[in-house]
Design a protein around this nucleic acid. Structure first.
Lengths: 143, 143
DNA sequence: CATCTAATTGAAACGGGTTATCAATTTCAA
DNA sequence: TTGAAATTGATAACCCGTTTCAATTAGATG
Protein backbone atom coordinates (compact mmCIF):
# COMPACT_ATOMS: atom_id res chain seq x y z
CA UNK A 1 0.00 0.00 0.00
CA UNK A 2 1.13 3.53 -0.68
CA UNK A 3 2.67 5.71 1.98
CA UNK A 4 1.13 8.79 0.45
CA UNK A 5 -2.45 8.45 1.63
CA UNK A 6 -3.05 12.16 2.03
CA UNK A 7 -1.79 13.15 -1.38
CA UNK A 8 -3.56 10.25 -3.02
CA UNK A 9 -6.81 11.34 -1.40
CA UNK A 10 -6.26 14.86 -2.71
CA UNK A 11 -5.66 13.55 -6.19
CA UNK A 12 -8.75 11.31 -6.10
CA UNK A 13 -10.84 14.21 -4.94
CA UNK A 14 -9.66 16.28 -7.87
CA UNK A 15 -10.28 13.40 -10.28
CA UNK A 16 -13.80 12.92 -8.93
CA UNK A 17 -14.65 16.57 -9.33
CA UNK A 18 -13.58 16.63 -12.95
CA UNK A 19 -14.78 13.26 -14.26
CA UNK A 20 -11.25 12.02 -14.56
CA UNK A 21 -10.10 8.47 -13.97
CA UNK A 22 -7.70 6.83 -11.60
CA UNK A 23 -5.25 4.87 -13.71
CA UNK A 24 -2.31 2.59 -13.08
CA UNK A 25 -0.03 5.17 -14.71
CA UNK A 26 -1.23 8.00 -12.52
CA UNK A 27 -0.66 5.96 -9.39
CA UNK A 28 2.80 4.96 -10.57
CA UNK A 29 3.77 8.54 -11.37
CA UNK A 30 2.32 9.91 -8.15
CA UNK A 31 4.32 7.49 -6.03
CA UNK A 32 7.54 8.30 -7.79
CA UNK A 33 6.88 12.04 -7.82
CA UNK A 34 6.17 12.26 -4.10
CA UNK A 35 9.52 10.71 -3.24
CA UNK A 36 11.36 13.78 -4.47
CA UNK A 37 11.44 17.44 -3.62
CA UNK A 38 11.48 18.52 -7.23
CA UNK A 39 12.03 16.79 -10.52
CA UNK A 40 11.77 17.25 -14.27
CA UNK A 41 9.50 15.23 -16.53
CA UNK A 42 12.52 13.78 -18.25
CA UNK A 43 14.09 12.59 -15.01
CA UNK A 44 10.85 10.99 -13.90
CA UNK A 45 10.61 9.32 -17.28
CA UNK A 46 14.00 7.69 -16.85
CA UNK A 47 13.27 6.63 -13.30
CA UNK A 48 10.01 4.99 -14.28
CA UNK A 49 11.16 3.41 -17.52
CA UNK A 50 12.56 0.54 -15.45
CA UNK A 51 9.25 -0.17 -13.75
CA UNK A 52 7.24 0.29 -16.91
CA UNK A 53 9.22 0.49 -20.14
CA UNK A 54 6.14 1.40 -22.12
CA UNK A 55 5.18 4.45 -20.10
CA UNK A 56 5.21 7.39 -22.50
CA UNK A 57 6.86 10.74 -21.91
CA UNK A 58 3.67 12.51 -22.96
CA UNK A 59 1.84 10.75 -20.15
CA UNK A 60 4.40 12.01 -17.67
CA UNK A 61 3.91 15.59 -18.84
CA UNK A 62 0.15 15.26 -18.83
CA UNK A 63 0.17 13.76 -15.36
CA UNK A 64 2.52 16.35 -13.89
CA UNK A 65 0.30 19.10 -15.25
CA UNK A 66 -2.63 17.28 -13.70
CA UNK A 67 -0.81 17.31 -10.36
CA UNK A 68 -0.36 21.06 -10.71
CA UNK A 69 -4.08 21.51 -11.25
CA UNK A 70 -4.79 19.28 -8.28
CA UNK A 71 -2.46 21.38 -6.13
CA UNK A 72 0.07 18.61 -5.50
CA UNK A 73 2.79 20.07 -7.68
CA UNK A 74 4.01 23.44 -8.81
CA UNK A 75 5.78 24.13 -12.07
CA UNK A 76 8.85 26.31 -12.05
CA UNK A 77 10.75 27.33 -15.17
CA UNK A 78 14.44 27.04 -14.55
CA UNK A 79 16.76 27.64 -17.48
CA UNK A 80 15.23 25.86 -20.44
CA UNK A 81 13.55 23.17 -18.40
CA UNK A 82 10.53 22.98 -16.13
CA UNK A 83 10.97 21.77 -12.59
CA UNK A 84 7.95 20.27 -10.90
CA UNK A 85 8.08 20.98 -7.18
CA UNK A 86 6.52 18.65 -4.66
CA UNK A 87 4.27 21.01 -2.72
CA UNK A 88 3.87 18.66 0.24
CA UNK A 89 7.61 18.80 0.77
CA UNK A 90 7.93 21.66 3.21
CA UNK A 91 10.95 23.88 3.53
CA UNK A 92 11.30 26.06 0.50
CA UNK A 93 14.83 27.26 0.05
CA UNK A 94 16.48 30.04 -1.84
CA UNK A 95 19.90 30.13 -3.42
CA UNK A 96 23.18 31.98 -3.15
CA UNK A 97 25.08 31.44 -6.38
CA UNK A 98 28.74 32.21 -7.06
CA UNK A 99 29.08 33.53 -10.59
CA UNK A 100 32.76 32.65 -10.64
CA UNK A 101 32.91 29.01 -9.54
CA UNK A 102 29.24 28.03 -9.66
CA UNK A 103 29.02 27.16 -5.98
CA UNK A 104 25.43 27.10 -4.71
CA UNK A 105 24.43 27.61 -1.07
CA UNK A 106 20.84 27.06 -0.02
CA UNK A 107 19.22 29.16 2.66
CA UNK A 108 15.93 30.03 4.26
CA UNK A 109 14.95 33.35 5.80
CA UNK A 110 11.60 33.85 7.47
CA UNK A 111 12.01 37.63 7.66
CA UNK A 112 12.42 37.89 3.93
CA UNK A 113 9.41 35.67 3.37
CA UNK A 114 7.32 37.82 5.66
CA UNK A 115 8.33 40.98 3.80
CA UNK A 116 7.44 39.29 0.54
CA UNK A 117 3.96 38.64 1.85
CA UNK A 118 3.65 42.29 2.80
CA UNK A 119 4.67 43.47 -0.63
CA UNK A 120 2.23 41.06 -2.25
CA UNK A 121 -0.63 42.11 -0.01
CA UNK A 122 0.06 45.76 -0.75
CA UNK A 123 -0.40 44.97 -4.44
CA UNK A 124 -3.43 42.74 -4.02
CA UNK A 125 -1.53 39.55 -4.83
CA UNK A 126 -1.72 36.17 -3.13
CA UNK A 127 1.65 34.44 -3.36
CA UNK A 128 1.72 30.78 -4.29
CA UNK A 129 5.44 30.41 -4.68
CA UNK A 130 8.56 32.45 -5.20
CA UNK A 131 12.09 32.37 -6.40
CA UNK A 132 15.00 34.22 -4.87
CA UNK A 133 18.51 33.93 -6.19
CA UNK A 134 21.47 36.00 -5.03
CA UNK A 135 24.35 36.15 -7.48
CA UNK A 136 27.83 37.16 -6.43
CA UNK A 137 31.23 35.95 -5.34
CA UNK A 138 31.81 33.34 -2.67
CA UNK A 139 34.57 33.88 -0.11
CA UNK A 140 37.06 31.87 -2.14
CA UNK A 141 36.49 33.81 -5.36
CA UNK A 142 36.77 37.33 -3.91
CA UNK A 143 40.48 38.02 -4.50
CA UNK B 1 25.99 60.76 -29.69
CA UNK B 2 24.35 58.14 -27.50
CA UNK B 3 22.63 58.98 -24.27
CA UNK B 4 23.86 55.78 -22.73
CA UNK B 5 27.50 56.62 -22.13
CA UNK B 6 27.82 54.60 -18.97
CA UNK B 7 26.33 51.42 -20.35
CA UNK B 8 28.21 51.73 -23.57
CA UNK B 9 31.44 52.07 -21.62
CA UNK B 10 30.57 48.95 -19.66
CA UNK B 11 29.91 47.05 -22.85
CA UNK B 12 33.12 48.22 -24.46
CA UNK B 13 35.05 47.21 -21.39
CA UNK B 14 33.60 43.73 -21.60
CA UNK B 15 34.30 43.53 -25.33
CA UNK B 16 37.90 44.57 -24.79
CA UNK B 17 38.46 41.97 -22.12
CA UNK B 18 37.21 39.15 -24.31
CA UNK B 19 38.60 40.06 -27.73
CA UNK B 20 35.17 40.90 -29.03
CA UNK B 21 34.33 43.63 -31.47
CA UNK B 22 32.17 46.71 -31.40
CA UNK B 23 29.78 46.48 -34.33
CA UNK B 24 27.03 48.60 -35.81
CA UNK B 25 24.48 45.93 -34.86
CA UNK B 26 25.57 45.82 -31.24
CA UNK B 27 25.31 49.57 -30.95
CA UNK B 28 21.87 49.54 -32.55
CA UNK B 29 20.62 46.78 -30.27
CA UNK B 30 22.13 48.38 -27.18
CA UNK B 31 20.42 51.71 -27.82
CA UNK B 32 17.05 50.07 -28.36
CA UNK B 33 17.44 47.71 -25.42
CA UNK B 34 18.34 50.46 -22.95
CA UNK B 35 15.16 52.37 -23.74
CA UNK B 36 13.04 49.67 -22.14
CA UNK B 37 12.76 48.17 -18.75
CA UNK B 38 12.46 44.62 -20.08
CA UNK B 39 11.84 43.10 -23.46
CA UNK B 40 11.88 39.83 -25.38
CA UNK B 41 14.16 39.07 -28.29
CA UNK B 42 11.16 38.83 -30.59
CA UNK B 43 9.86 42.27 -29.57
CA UNK B 44 13.24 43.85 -30.06
CA UNK B 45 13.45 42.19 -33.45
CA UNK B 46 10.21 43.80 -34.56
CA UNK B 47 11.17 47.19 -33.20
CA UNK B 48 14.48 47.17 -34.99
CA UNK B 49 13.28 45.70 -38.27
CA UNK B 50 12.18 49.19 -39.25
CA UNK B 51 15.59 50.73 -38.68
CA UNK B 52 17.45 47.82 -40.22
CA UNK B 53 15.29 45.30 -42.11
CA UNK B 54 18.21 42.95 -42.55
CA UNK B 55 19.06 42.59 -38.89
CA UNK B 56 18.71 38.88 -38.06
CA UNK B 57 16.85 37.42 -35.13
CA UNK B 58 19.86 35.27 -34.30
CA UNK B 59 21.93 38.39 -33.88
CA UNK B 60 19.41 39.78 -31.42
CA UNK B 61 19.59 36.62 -29.34
CA UNK B 62 23.38 36.53 -29.46
CA UNK B 63 23.63 40.17 -28.50
CA UNK B 64 21.15 39.94 -25.63
CA UNK B 65 23.10 37.00 -24.24
CA UNK B 66 26.23 39.08 -24.62
CA UNK B 67 24.59 41.85 -22.60
CA UNK B 68 23.85 39.33 -19.87
CA UNK B 69 27.49 38.33 -19.74
CA UNK B 70 28.53 41.97 -19.64
CA UNK B 71 26.15 42.59 -16.74
CA UNK B 72 23.86 44.97 -18.61
CA UNK B 73 20.95 42.57 -18.86
CA UNK B 74 19.44 39.75 -16.92
CA UNK B 75 17.46 36.89 -18.44
CA UNK B 76 14.22 35.83 -16.87
CA UNK B 77 12.27 32.80 -18.04
CA UNK B 78 8.54 33.27 -18.04
CA UNK B 79 6.34 30.61 -19.56
CA UNK B 80 7.95 29.63 -22.82
CA UNK B 81 9.63 32.98 -23.42
CA UNK B 82 12.68 34.75 -22.05
CA UNK B 83 12.45 38.31 -20.82
CA UNK B 84 15.65 40.34 -20.86
CA UNK B 85 15.67 42.88 -18.05
CA UNK B 86 17.50 46.16 -18.30
CA UNK B 87 19.65 46.12 -15.17
CA UNK B 88 20.53 49.81 -15.32
CA UNK B 89 16.93 50.90 -15.36
CA UNK B 90 16.41 52.91 -12.19
CA UNK B 91 18.26 50.51 -10.03
CA UNK B 92 17.04 47.04 -9.58
CA UNK B 93 13.47 45.94 -9.38
CA UNK B 94 11.79 42.71 -8.47
CA UNK B 95 8.62 41.22 -9.86
CA UNK B 96 5.21 40.12 -8.75
CA UNK B 97 3.90 37.81 -11.44
CA UNK B 98 0.35 36.57 -11.85
CA UNK B 99 0.45 32.94 -12.95
CA UNK B 100 -3.05 33.20 -14.34
CA UNK B 101 -3.02 36.25 -16.58
CA UNK B 102 0.69 37.04 -16.81
CA UNK B 103 0.37 40.48 -15.24
CA UNK B 104 3.68 41.78 -13.92
CA UNK B 105 4.05 44.35 -11.15
CA UNK B 106 7.46 45.75 -10.38
CA UNK B 107 8.53 46.66 -6.89
CA UNK B 108 11.50 47.60 -4.80
CA UNK B 109 11.96 46.86 -1.14
CA UNK B 110 14.98 48.10 0.77
CA UNK B 111 14.28 45.92 3.78
CA UNK B 112 14.37 42.78 1.70
CA UNK B 113 17.58 43.93 0.05
CA UNK B 114 19.16 44.57 3.42
CA UNK B 115 18.22 41.10 4.65
CA UNK B 116 19.66 39.62 1.48
CA UNK B 117 22.95 41.34 2.25
CA UNK B 118 22.90 39.87 5.73
CA UNK B 119 22.30 36.36 4.45
CA UNK B 120 25.09 36.78 1.94
CA UNK B 121 27.52 38.14 4.52
CA UNK B 122 26.73 35.25 6.86
CA UNK B 123 27.77 32.89 4.08
CA UNK B 124 30.83 34.86 3.02
CA UNK B 125 29.29 36.03 -0.23
CA UNK B 126 29.42 39.46 -1.86
CA UNK B 127 26.26 40.02 -3.88
CA UNK B 128 26.58 41.50 -7.34
CA UNK B 129 23.00 41.10 -8.43
CA UNK B 130 19.90 39.19 -7.55
CA UNK B 131 16.58 37.98 -8.79
CA UNK B 132 13.38 37.88 -6.80
CA UNK B 133 10.12 36.78 -8.33
CA UNK B 134 6.89 36.27 -6.44
CA UNK B 135 4.38 34.07 -8.24
CA UNK B 136 0.72 34.06 -7.40
CA UNK B 137 -2.66 35.45 -8.29
CA UNK B 138 -3.40 39.11 -8.84
CA UNK B 139 -6.54 40.61 -7.36
CA UNK B 140 -8.48 40.09 -10.55
CA UNK B 141 -7.63 36.39 -10.88
CA UNK B 142 -8.38 35.32 -7.34
CA UNK B 143 -11.90 34.00 -7.84
C1' DC C 1 -21.02 -9.68 -14.82
C1' DA C 2 -21.51 -7.66 -19.41
C1' DT C 3 -22.06 -3.50 -21.84
C1' DC C 4 -21.19 1.03 -23.19
C1' DT C 5 -19.25 5.60 -23.28
C1' DA C 6 -15.97 8.77 -22.13
C1' DA C 7 -11.39 9.28 -20.49
C1' DT C 8 -6.64 7.76 -21.09
C1' DT C 9 -2.75 5.96 -23.20
C1' DG C 10 1.57 5.54 -26.25
C1' DA C 11 3.71 6.76 -30.41
C1' DA C 12 4.68 9.98 -33.35
C1' DA C 13 3.98 14.41 -35.50
C1' DC C 14 3.95 19.04 -34.46
C1' DG C 15 5.01 23.81 -32.41
C1' DG C 16 7.37 27.85 -30.53
C1' DG C 17 11.46 29.70 -28.76
C1' DT C 18 16.36 29.51 -28.91
C1' DT C 19 20.88 27.95 -30.60
C1' DA C 20 24.20 26.05 -34.07
C1' DT C 21 26.04 26.07 -38.73
C1' DC C 22 28.44 28.23 -42.41
C1' DA C 23 29.75 31.17 -46.18
C1' DA C 24 30.19 36.04 -46.69
C1' DT C 25 31.29 40.29 -44.46
C1' DT C 26 33.31 43.40 -41.13
C1' DT C 27 36.36 44.90 -37.45
C1' DC C 28 40.69 46.33 -35.93
C1' DA C 29 45.56 45.50 -34.80
C1' DA C 30 49.78 45.39 -37.12
C1' DT D 1 46.37 48.48 -46.46
C1' DT D 2 46.38 43.94 -45.19
C1' DG D 3 45.06 39.76 -42.91
C1' DA D 4 43.49 37.08 -39.07
C1' DA D 5 39.75 36.62 -36.23
C1' DA D 6 35.21 37.89 -34.92
C1' DT D 7 30.54 38.77 -36.56
C1' DT D 8 26.65 38.57 -39.36
C1' DG D 9 22.26 36.86 -41.64
C1' DA D 10 19.74 33.04 -43.34
C1' DT D 11 18.33 28.87 -42.31
C1' DA D 12 18.55 24.41 -40.43
C1' DA D 13 18.70 22.03 -36.29
C1' DC D 14 17.47 21.59 -31.57
C1' DC D 15 15.02 21.11 -27.30
C1' DC D 16 11.10 20.85 -24.45
C1' DG D 17 6.65 20.39 -24.23
C1' DT D 18 1.90 19.76 -26.38
C1' DT D 19 -1.33 17.88 -29.69
C1' DT D 20 -3.15 14.28 -32.51
C1' DC D 21 -5.22 9.91 -33.14
C1' DA D 22 -6.29 5.10 -33.10
C1' DA D 23 -6.33 1.60 -29.62
C1' DT D 24 -7.09 0.63 -24.82
C1' DT D 25 -9.06 1.11 -20.25
C1' DA D 26 -11.87 2.81 -16.29
C1' DG D 27 -15.90 2.64 -14.13
C1' DA D 28 -20.90 3.78 -14.24
C1' DT D 29 -25.02 1.54 -15.67
C1' DG D 30 -28.14 -2.06 -16.81
Amino acid sequence: MSKHQKEMALLKEHLGKHQLKYTRQRELILDAFLKQEHITAEELYHQLSRKDPHLGLATIYRTLNLFCEAGLAQARHFGTQTQYDNVSHKGHHDHLICTECGKIVEFENCDIERLQEEVAARNGFIIKTHRLELYGLCSRCQH
